[in-house]
């Protein structure tokens, strides 16, 4: 276990993410050179006006692009970390926030918030959607747990099975909401497919406030997660309070998932692909893997969002893009691995 090589990799990922943020900010309908972007950012930090450039540039950078870009990076990082945690807990490299029904729960809650207006209840969307998504995710988590509860050791098979059942019920529920929604249905559908259009600094702040403490929290338990790969029984005998750590980390990862879904809709495959890819490169040690997932997920989703925003002639929902690219890519990895196992 050499610590220097993974550390170097993480530093590289971090630098790459910073560069990607600057580059992506410059891309779009209005082209802004990377140096000018840095100038604007520097001026903002120093509290000065940036001189010698188009006066609309600072506005475009600070008010339009940067909030969206940072939200995309944070959501990508959050989803990847949540995926890595679910995988480590369920001992299933193919698990992610969806397997447990958490994402569906958050989406159900958020759809509910969107059609509230139908019943004459008006709550500001920026407030109601995250709150409802959060309660949807938590409700699902509680539902899944209580379904699996007789087995209070929380074995992964029981949990996944309960998650699949609950998710199936919830997606029927979302279908029903869409049916009810009538005129609102296009908003719900677009949102369910995932998008970062029109994200503001409020989204950046609310995502940061959950994702970063969440990352620190799971990092605190990273070594326990490693030990839990030995199985619950054995992990217990090595001094890990497996059942308790499991519950706390599931709660934390669900919270991260809920905030991500509430700001961006359902974006699949980030939580699956990034941990999987990085585990192939860095090995399974969660102390290295979790921070790397945060950075790697951020880079991936930022990249995907920049493609739909700046390259494609008209913007397609990012959830569709990640699934279209991520799905086949994942099949390829999976197939390759199966072949390697059988030979």
């Amino acid at each position: 276990m050499t610590i220097s090589r993974p550390l170097l990799f993480i530093v590289l990922l971090f630098l790459f993410l910073c560069a990607a943020i600057v580059l992506a900010t410059g891309m779009g309908f209005l082209k802004i050179a990377p140096l000018e972007v840095i100038q604007i950012l520097w001026a903002q930090l120093a509290g000065q006006e940036a001189n010698g450039m188009d006066p609309t540039f600072p506005f475009v950078v600070m008010e339009v692009r940067l909030p969206r870009i940072l939200t995309a990076a944070l959501v990508g990082g959050g989803l990847a970390v949540a995926g890595a945690v679910f995988q480590a807990i369920l001992l299933n490299p193919l698990a992610d926030p969806y397997t447990l029904g958490i994402s569906s729960g958050a989406a159900f809650g958020a759809s509910l918030a969107i059609i509230l207006t139908l019943f004459g209840i008006t709550v500001p969307a920026w407030f109601s959607i995250p709150i409802f998504a959060f309660f949807g995710a938590m409700g699902t988590l509680i539902g899944v747990f209580s379904l699996a509860a007789p087995d209070n050791r929380l074995s992964s098979n029981t949990l996944i099975l309960s998650g699949v059942i609950v998710a199936a019920i919830l997606s029927a529920g979302i279908g029903f909401i869409k049916y009810l929604a009538d005129e609102q249905v296009s908003i719900i559908i677009f949102w369910l497919m995932g998008s970062f259009v029109g994200r503001t600094w409020t989204d950046v702040l609310s995502t940061t406030a959950v994702v970063l403490p969440g990352l620190l929290f799971v990092l605190y338990f990273a070594r326990d997660l490693n030990i839990m790969a030995l199985g619950e029984r054995t992990a217990d005998t090595l001094g890990v309070e497996t059942a308790r750590v499991k519950k706390m980390l599931l709660l934390c990862a669900s919270l991260i998932t809920a905030i991500c879904v509430s700001v961006s809709g359902i974006i699949g495959f980030v939580g699956l692909i990034i941990p999987h890819l990085l585990r192939m490169i860095l090995g399974p040690d969660n102390r290295v893997l979790l921070p790397a997932c945060f950075l790697g997920g951020g880079i991936l989703l930022l990249g995907a969002d920049t493609i739909t925003r700046a390259w494609l002639p008209s913007e397609i929902p990012i959830g569709v893009l990640t699934s279209l690219i991520g799905g086949p890519f994942f099949c390829y990895i999976f197939r390759k691995k199966q072949l390697a196992l059988s030979s």
């Binding site: 276990m1 299933n92 030995l230 199985g231 217990d236 005998t237 890990v240 090995g283 040690d285």
Partner: peptide
């Protein structure tokens, strides 16, 4: 506590499965 017991008692179980590809030395 579990941690106290873990410094006193070690178990070699009958079955053993490993979730991820850890190396022998890491295990």
């Amino acid at each position: 506590s579990r941690q106290e017991l873990a410094t006193q008692l070690a178990l070699v179980p009958q079955n053993f499965t490993m979730g991820f590809e850890y190396q022998v030395r890491d295990v």
